[in-house]
Design a binder for these strands. Structure first.
Length: 211
DNA sequence: GACCAGGCACATC
DNA sequence: GATGTGCATGGT
């Protein structure tokens, strides 16, 4: 049996085409971006990342070694810059303590264990952890975000108060655990959300899912 | 000027 | 365990 969620994926893919997420030059850059984009427009995140790139700071050791105040100043365009500077530091500390500063360690761990570890870092919640797992470490986990939730709610797949794990399970239980597809699917839901499923100005009546 | 954006931790009840 | 609040920039 083919699930509804898979049909929706096919529909979105043929309507919007491949989304080519995540725009980054390295897994490390994806991880930094995942923290910076918390509740923030991606455009603003790119400004912040550009600031870091210009200073050649998109490298774990260098980024960890600058004062937290300098880090905050550089990522200012991404908003919540004091909070996020601390969160980046927490993650970098974890990156060196737990992973010894390379991706060899995490590559040996099971996805569930990796997720636990990421969630233990202060400042990394479910969405950020899953974004890192999927987009940086290429693990087949489905990333749930505000768009995912809104789209599913508008199409009566979930209740308004549905929790993160509950929504994630909807996707994980019915779909093949395929990194490429999970990558595209999440990006397509964001795309749909941005065009047709805004918070207020919803264009539900012309949403491609209703065709 | 209001609303929105690829969340999370923490306080309080 | 639910609910509220602070964090902040830049685009529409």
């Amino acid at each position: 049996m083919v699930s509804d969620l898979y049909l929706i994926y096919k529909k979105l893919y043929s309507h919007f085409g491949p989304q080519a997420w995540w725009p980054a030059e390295s897994p490390f850059e994806v991880m930094i971006g995942a923290i910076l984009t918390q509740n923030t427009n991606w455009q603003n995140v790119e400004r912040a990342i550009d600031n870091l790139r210009k200073k050649s700071l998109l490298e774990p050791k260098k980024l960890y070694n600058i004062p937290v105040e300098d880090l905050a100043r550089l990522i200012r365009p991404a908003g919540y810059y004091n909070v996020k500077a601390k969160r980046l530091r927490e993650f970098l500390k974890f990156y060196f303590d737990a992973w010894k500063g390379s991706l060899k360690k995490p590559s040996l761990l099971k996805t569930a264990r990796l997720r636990e570890l990421l969630l233990s870092v202060k400042g990394i919640g479910p969405e950020t952890a899953d974004s890192i797992l999927l987009y940086a470490l290429k693990r087949p986990v489905f990333v749930v975000d505000a768009y995912t939730k809104r789209v599913l709610f508008r199409h009566n797949f979930i209740k308004e108060n549905a929790g993160y794990d509950e929504i994630q399970n909807l996707f994980m239980k019915d779909l093949k655990k395929n990194v490429k597809m999970f990558n595209e699917y999440h990006a397509l839901l964001v795309k749909l959300g941005k065009v047709y499923c805004l918070k207020r100005k919803a264009k539900c009546e012309i949403c491609p899912l209703r065709e």
